[in-house]
């Protein structure tokens, strides 16, 4: 039985964490909004409040629209490829058989690696002469397909994306596997008894039941995509010719390479706004899922 408590009791537990959270998370977030209206250059206190000038400028900046385009391509790929692959792996590996447990563990493995290390490893895989991707293609006699994956403007973004998806797939599989444990076995068996084949059972029973997990996977994927910086920075630094420059990389380069911190802040604010939209959609979807299943 919970009753209302005098505020002093919870406050004595909450004060310290809230203070730290407010000072180092909330305040900086609000500060970014403020800087996005200034022309601060990264040092000194001599800067002006310039209103919406940064935003006016950014929407006519070709590098920015390029970054938005790359981010959109990335998001489109990210929502589909690792999601479907993660789902397929989860469906194939559910259950407690030894072989399933071993396979699952190996598919999880990339989750515990740093994006920096994943980036470094994949750079060798894509190496034009000795990389296994090209060795493999040449071995198949497809020499004309072999290219310098990360230096070729047409392939760089996709090559980096695949390295990123290598990690994201395992994470998605974990979430789908957790979701699958809540699909009641009798329901699946009932469908089979009623004569549904595997595909029908999947389409009509399992996938609808996995809806909450799917929503989580899509939301997490979108948020992770928007903020992922490290793996791109390690593999291409956004190049060649800004072809793999996403919003997160653009924000970093403008702020910390060109020292346009006010301008960079406006990019960060736009990134933040996009995240907010995803969070909003996510909460609306989960609310709907709750209505369905409660």
């Amino acid at each position: 039985m919970l009753r209302r408590h005098p505020w002093i009791l919870p406050a004595s537990f909450l004060l310290l964490p809230l203070l730290v959270y407010f000072t180092f998370v909330i305040l900086p977030t609000l500060n970014s909004l403020y800087y996005s209206f200034t022309d601060w250059v990264g040092y000194g206190t001599d800067y002006q409040f310039i209103g919406l000038a940064n935003f006016e400028k950014i929407f006519s900046d070709r590098l920015f629209s390029n970054a938005i385009r790359n981010t959109a391509i990335w998001l489109g790929l990210a929502m589909t490829v690792p999601t479907l692959l993660g789902l397929a792996l989860a469906l194939g590996l559910q259950g407690k058989r030894t072989i399933n447990t071993v396979y699952k563990s190996l598919f999880y493995l990339p989750i515990c690696l740093s994006p920096v290390i994943i980036g470094i490893i994949w750079v060798w895989l894509y190496s034009p002469k000795l990389g296994i991707v090209n060795l493999f293609l040449r071995g198949l006699g497809l020499d004309q397909l072999a290219t310098a994956w990360l230096a070729n403007p047409n392939t760089a973004l996709f090559a980096v994306f695949i390295a990123w998806a290598w990690q994201q797939t395992g994470l998605n599989m974990v979430i789908f596997l957790a979701g699958l444990t809540s699909v009641p076995a009798p329901l699946v068996e009932a469908a089979k008894v009623d004569g549904a084949n595997t595909w029908q059972t999947l389409r009509k029973v399992i996938i609808p039941m996995l809806r909450p997990s799917t929503v989580v996977v899509l939301a997490l994927t979108a948020i992770n995509s928007l903020k992922s910086f490290e793996i791109i920075w390690v593999m291409t630094r956004g190049g060649p010719f800004n072809k793999s420059d996403t919003l997160a990389v653009f924000m970093y380069s403008e702020s910390f390479r060109k020292f346009k911190m006010g301008y960079g802040s406006s990019a960060a604010v736009i990134l933040f706004a996009m995240t907010l939209i995803i969070i909003f959609l996510y909460f609306r979807q989960t609310a709907r899922a709750d209505e369905l299943y409660d």
Binding site: F24, P28, M251, A268
Partner: peptide, 15 residues
């Protein structure tokens, strides 16, 4: 706060 992209706090924290 779990959903905040670190980019939104990068510059102010740096300062």
């Amino acid at each position: 706060g779990m959903f905040l992209p670190p980019q939104i706090a990068l510059i102010p924290v740096f300062r």
